[in-house]
Amino acid sequence: MYVYGNVVTKPAYEPERRTKEPERTGKTSRQVRKNRRKALHMSPGYVIFLAVAAILALIVCVNYVQIQSRLTSRSKAITAMQEELADMKEENNTKYNAVMDSVNLDEIRDKAQNELGMVYASSEQIVEYDNPASDYVKQYENIPEDGILAQSDKK
Rank of each mutant, 00 (worst) to 15 (best):
Q31P: 00
Y4K: 11
Y4W: 08
E16I: 15
V8S: 07
R17P: 01
Y13H: 05
P11K: 03
S29L: 00
G5I: 13
T9K: 08
Q31C: 00
N6L: 10
Q31N: 11
H41I: 13
E16C: 09
E21N: 12
K38I: 04
A39W: 02
G26R: 04
G5K: 14
H41A: 13
N35G: 13
K20N: 02
V32N: 11
V7W: 01
R30I: 00
Q31F: 04
K27L: 05
K34W: 04
K27H: 11
R30N: 08
V3N: 03
L40S: 01
V7T: 13
K10I: 15
Y13T: 15
V3T: 11
T28Y: 12
V3K: 05
K27C: 04
S29H: 07
R33V: 00
E16P: 08
Y4H: 09
N6R: 09
H41L: 10
V7N: 09
A39P: 00
N6H: 07
T9A: 14
P11E: 03
Y13E: 06
L40M: 05
L40F: 05
V32Y: 11
R30Y: 13
K34S: 10
P15F: 02
T19K: 12
A39Y: 03
R18Q: 11
Y2D: 06
T25L: 12
M42N: 14
A12G: 07
T25S: 14
M42Q: 13
V7A: 12
G26F: 06
P22L: 14
G5V: 08
R17M: 04
Q31I: 01
A39T: 10
P11T: 10
G26L: 04
R33N: 15
E16K: 07
R17T: 15
R18P: 03
G26Y: 06
K20Y: 03
Y4R: 11
K10Q: 13
N35C: 06
E14L: 07
K34E: 14
R37V: 02
T28K: 14
A39D: 02
P11W: 00
H41P: 00
E16Q: 05
R37W: 10
P22D: 11
R33G: 15
P11M: 12
T28L: 13
V3G: 02
R30L: 06
K20E: 04
K20H: 03
N6D: 14
A12Q: 02
K34G: 06
P22K: 11
M42S: 10
V32T: 14
V3I: 14
R17Q: 11
V7D: 03
K20S: 06
S29K: 09
V32A: 13
E16M: 12
G5Y: 07
G5P: 02
T19P: 01
V32E: 09
M42E: 13
A39S: 04
T28M: 09
N35D: 12
T25M: 05
Y2S: 09
M42A: 10
V7H: 02
T19I: 15
R37I: 00
T19M: 07
A12I: 15
T9F: 10
R17I: 14
E14N: 07
K27T: 05
V8L: 14
K10V: 15
Q31Y: 03
R36Q: 03
R17L: 14
Y13N: 04
R30S: 07
Q31K: 14
R36D: 02
P11V: 14
E21C: 03
N35F: 01
T9E: 09
G5S: 09
V32M: 07
S29Q: 05
G26M: 10
H41V: 08
R30G: 00
